[in-house]
């Protein structure tokens, strides 16, 4: 298992934290419900859910790159988010899965859930551009 990067200021300000590490090394990122995460009254903001998904995808890629991580600069190229269920006013978690990490591009998926991991509330794919540092 590799070292996990510290979360950026945006993630920390939102209250995101690494909750657990998956068997494949991908961190599970958790976000408690708070005023900062609220969209329409009583629901999570779609952007906060998207931001969490992208952070989980990013963290999964960092973990997958392992020792190479220090030599690589990772830039998100695009993201596509599907909203599956309403984000209820309680904790949300997300984890990513690297489908492929090539020489120039990495393709990553992420899912977010609340009480029941088998009922995701949102999912996404993110493509990252990999460049030498």
């Amino acid at each position: 298992m590799s070292d996990h990067p510290t979360l950026p200021p945006y993630a920390i300000a939102m209250g995101m934290r690494i909750e657990a590490i998956e068997a494949d090394g991908a961190p599970v990122i958790a976000l408690d419900y708070s005023d900062r995460a609220e969209g329409r009254p009583g629901y999570l903001h779609g952007g906060a859910i998207g931001g969490l998904l992208e952070m989980a995808a990013y963290a999964a890629l960092h973990a997958a790159l392992g020792a190479e991580d220090a030599q690589v600069r990772i830039k998100p190229v695009n993201i596509s988010i599907e909203y599956l269920r309403a984000g209820l006013p309680r904790q949300i978690q997300a984890a990513g899965q690297v489908l492929r990490a090539g020489r120039r591009v990495a393709n990553v998926r992420a899912e977010a859930w609340q009480d029941d991991r088998s009922k995701p509330i949102a999912s996404c794919w993110v493509n990252f551009l990999l460049r030498p540092r």
């Binding site: 950026p8 945006y10 779609g46 952007g47 931001g51």
Partner: peptide
């Protein structure tokens, strides 16, 4: 508080998702 990359000061993409949403 919205920075995504402390080396460059570039804003994180999460807030941009929220803005576009």
């Amino acid at each position: 508080e919205l920075v995504g990359d402390t080396e460059t000061g570039v804003i994180a993409s999460g807030p941009i998702i929220s803005l576009l949403d």
